[in-house]
Design a protein around this nucleic acid. Sequence first.
DNA 1: CATGCAGTACGATTGAACTCGTACATAGGA
DNA 2: TCCTATGTACGAGTTCAATCGTACTGCATG
Lengths: 127, 127
Amino acid sequence: MSATVRQAPVVKVVPEPENLPEPLPEPAVGELRLETVLGALSDPLRLRIVRKLLLESEAFDHSCGWFGLDRPKSSLTHHFKALREAGVTRQRQYGLERRSHVRVEDLNARFPGLVDLVAAWTPPDAP
Amino acid sequence: MSATVRQAPVVKVVPEPENLPEPLPEPAVGELRLETVLGALSDPLRLRIVRKLLLESEAFDHSCGWFGLDRPKSSLTHHFKALREAGVTRQRQYGLERRSHVRVEDLNARFPGLVDLVAAWTPPDAP
DNA sequence: CATGCAGTACGATTGAACTCGTACATAGGA
DNA sequence: TCCTATGTACGAGTTCAATCGTACTGCATG
């Protein structure tokens, strides 16, 4: 623990790769299946989650409270798990929280163009 | 099993635009929704249908018997309808048959790259 | 006219997934 | 230590889609 956070919590959200907690169980790159990924992305709420991650700050991991979704917490947990098990997102255990980010490189390697489609998506009603 | 194509059916499968029967009810280009299209493509069987249309003969319309799928007819009807209502395929009534083709232009206009993903897809087990 | 055939329409059953309430675990502060 | 806030785990209810059997339609052949 060389990084002392004492004052100025500032950003410090992305530690060095060596300090990262192990990702939760997820499919390997070669195991990604198009039909599964598309199924995970066929839900408007999950599409909104992924899009927000892509557009607003892909560089960081975010816990589900960051998204501002007015759904019960248990529903959010369900959807984040669905995204992770499909291979769309990666989740790490940061102490108490589980933060997520999109596996952009993996997705682009296996399904080039798919991430761009999600980023360009427009929600049904909201802006 | 014998398809008995008679003699030289040649090509001539794509008549002039004026002779085409009216397409069955389908969403307009502007009404295509990504989440709906992805949902339609999240099924392996439908993915196989679209892929076969793309790879083997996109220029023609095909009735569902052409695909060689060993499922009950009613199941096939269900899946072809799902693809059409999602806007993935267009169906026309050729006499007794309903032939389908992929709306490649519309899909590329709204979701560029998606068609390529389906064409590059590899089925779980079958050829 | 009678028979066979290709495909669609309809209905019922089954299974999966979305949704949410509740209970539980941990970090931080008084 | 006690309390609160943030998320996750688990379980049940409900909705929806996939699957298939059966019946119907119209063309083709004898």
